[in-house]
């Protein structure tokens, strides 16, 4: 038996909006520690890892570990029927072939339940080791989204370089080229506006902008984003989800032939 009650139901709506275009089908894994998902896009270039910790739910009951295969397009259709202020409860029976989403309006005067069929998904789980990254950049998520959007109008790929001078985003295409440099700044009044660069070693990696732009659909989940980079490793683009967890996107770099 599984019963997870999330008071801020809009978080789940936002999570689905952030990942449904990247991944079609995914297994949601439920355990004592939380509600999680790991899934790759169909080309195995990008991976999303979601964690909603059990202590972030108002009520969390998960009698045994459960893996529920869901079509994210269909799940998103159902969650769109929840109001932004609604409390969302996810319910499932052990060994059942469906999951129920229950939506309660804040004043409790409207209660809906939507039952969705589960599916069997052969999941390919990647073991991602804990790594010390060469450079970690924390910046406003809206700024990162803006840069990715702007640069994708010029080119298809971006070179992200971190040095002691700051983080540089470069692209080039048929019409020309562009560079955006963000320097470390410290905002006294608002930590969310800060750009903070921790660098042990300069690092420069090339990525497809199409994927980064897809990741920025998670911008509504967090005011800040963290980019963790090491030479010859996928970048980690992380959005913290207030008080409850995180959504991490991994993107394999372009490799020089």
């Amino acid at each position: 038996m599984l019963e997870l009650r999330l008071v801020q139901g809009s978080l789940l709506k936002k999570v689905l909006d952030a990942i449904k275009d990247l991944v079609t089908d995914a297994n949601f894994d439920c355990s004592e520690s939380g509600f999680s998902l790991q899934a790759m896009d169909s080309s195995h270039v990008a991976l999303v890892a979601l964690l909603l910790r059990s202590d972030g739910f108002e009520h969390y009951r998960c009698d045994r570990n459960l893996s529920m295969g869901m079509n994210l397009t269909n799940m998103s259709k159902m969650l769109k029927c929840a109001g932004n202020d609604d409390i969302i409860t996810i319910k499932a029976d052990d060994g059942g072939d469906s999951v129920t989403f229950m939506f309660e309006s804040p004043s409790q005067d409207k209660v809906s339940d939507f039952e969705m069929k589960l599916m069997d998904i052969d999941s390919e789980h990647l073991g991602i080791p804990e790594t010390e990254y060469h450079a970690i950049v924390k910046m406003p998520s809206a700024e990162f989204a803006r840069i990715c959007r702007d640069l994708s109008t010029i080119g298809d790929t971006v070179v992200i370089s971190v040095s002691k001078d700051g983080v540089k985003f470069s692209t080039s295409g048929d019409i020309g080229s562009a560079n955006v440099v963000c320097r470390q700044n410290n905002s006294v009044d608002n930590k969310d506006n800060e750009t903070v660069i921790e660098m042990n070693e300069p690092v420069s990696l090339t990525f497809a902008l199409r994927y980064l732009n897809s990741f920025t659909k998670a911008t509504t989940l967090s005011n800040t984003v963290t980019l963790s980079m090491s030479k010859e490793l996928p970048v980690v683009v992380e959005y913290k989800i207030a008080e409850i967890g995180h959504i991490r996107f991994y993107l394999a770099p372009k490799i020089e032939d």
Partner: peptide
């Protein structure tokens, strides 16, 4: 010239 890396080249399938 560069080519797109795949995640399996960096992480192990489990």
């Amino acid at each position: 010239k560069s080519s797109q890396g795949r995640l399996e080249s960096f992480f192990q399938l489990s």
